[in-house]
Nucleic acid binder design. Sequence first.
RNA 1: GCGGGCGUAGCUCAGUUGGUUAGAGCGUCGGGUUGUGGUUCCGAAGGCCGUGGGUUCAAGUCCCAUCGCUCGCCCCA
Length: 435
Amino acid sequence: MALSTQSYKGARDFYPPDKRLQKYMFGVWRQVCERFGYEEYDAPILEPLEIYLAKTGEEIVNEQTYVFEDRGGRQVVIRPEMTPTVSRMVAAKRQELAYPLRWYSIPNLWRYERPQRGRLREHWQLNVDIFGVVGSVAESEMITLVDAMFKAFNAKPTMYEIRLNSRQLVDYALGTYLGFNKAEALVIGKLIDRKAKMEQTKFIAAVDAACSPKAREAGAVEKLMELLAIDELSELPATLQGQDSVKALETLLQQLKQAGITNIRFDIGLMRGFDYYTDIVFEVFDLHPDNNRSMLGGGRYDGLVGLFGVAPVPTVGFGWGDVTLANFLELHHLLPVLAAETDLYVALVGDIAVAAQQPIATLRKNGLNLAVDLSGRKLGDQLKAADKKGIKYALVIGADELKSQKYKLKDLTTGQEQAVTLDGIAAKLKKPRAA
RNA sequence: GCGGGCGUAGCUCAGUUGGUUAGAGCGUCGGGUUGUGGUUCCGAAGGCCGUGGGUUCAAGUCCCAUCGCUCGCCCCA
């Protein structure tokens, strides 16, 4: 029985062209992060089970993560997300770090579940966090950074939409305003999260079923539906308008719009699950009709660092998966044509491999990435190989060239060819790779 | 964990109401006289029709099971 060549379920092989795309995406992420003063960090892919148990329910950890026992009998998890890890790192050096911390990372993460579109078992996720800032200036910076990333990927404002909400506002609305108790609010919050996927009548029926008679009689279902239909802060009922959370959202929206971000709006139905978020939450939606889904999300989570036994640190952060980004770029035709890292493919004519070493060494010393064809094939076949590898230029070296010190440089995309000196080649090829 | 769809050449697929030696395009390899590819011409290799069982004179085609892929649900960090 032959061995299977398939990669592990839900995980991908990255052949050089795939890796080229990944490097491009990560490169843009890194560039924008660093432009905003964020520093890269990293951590082990394995973590002790406890740091996830503290935050999420045990079921989720057991059913949706890779958990195993190591040889020392310790329960180990392959990290399904980065947030507990980075919180652990901050807590460990809580006293000595220089706040505000601006940190980012692009970890690979694993979750144990059936793969589907946009959701694999292994993926990479950009994580950006700012620690130690209390006011909404942190959210403002974070969303500005997100928007700068979309612009750096050449996305237009019509392709995506930033949606904002406040967990405090939702808590107040479900509790004090609509009169749900905590258990009801939890169930209804989850329903609101799924509302877009449900039919209106089914949604209403489900909310109604989750209501206590008392809340139902007070008209909570109708009031909730009215509330969910609102898409401007100014349309909120007066009792909600007075909330600090609404004022914070107002300030934030105003700031961002003034900064030129127009595709942003308030969305009271935005939940981001019912996990560790404590205040403002945000998501970016793909507006393409074939992929109307959330691409990235984040918000404020002030409580996590404190779980490690130190004073809490206010934090705002988001995560953005490589799969959803790649889907977005593909659907909107934003994938650039990526040239190989190799600048130049050297084709040898005749038995001159030894004699050609000197010019080859000179070109490398001049900073060029070059590959030499070692096959001794016909020239045509060597050029074909260069083209297939995605290399833009080929250089022909034969007895004539060695003698005249002029080499034939061929642009494989245009087919144009010219005779140049070694220095001329380096000068000509130094820059174009970035594009 | 639950449900739908699909497994035929390296890839994308065709294959009639079951009927001889299973096809195409692309790709790969060789050639069109020894220094020019990506366009063209000629040729070749390459398939246990996912796997196992069943029905039948006869199965790529029908039935059952199983594995794999895929889309969705649940869940969402």
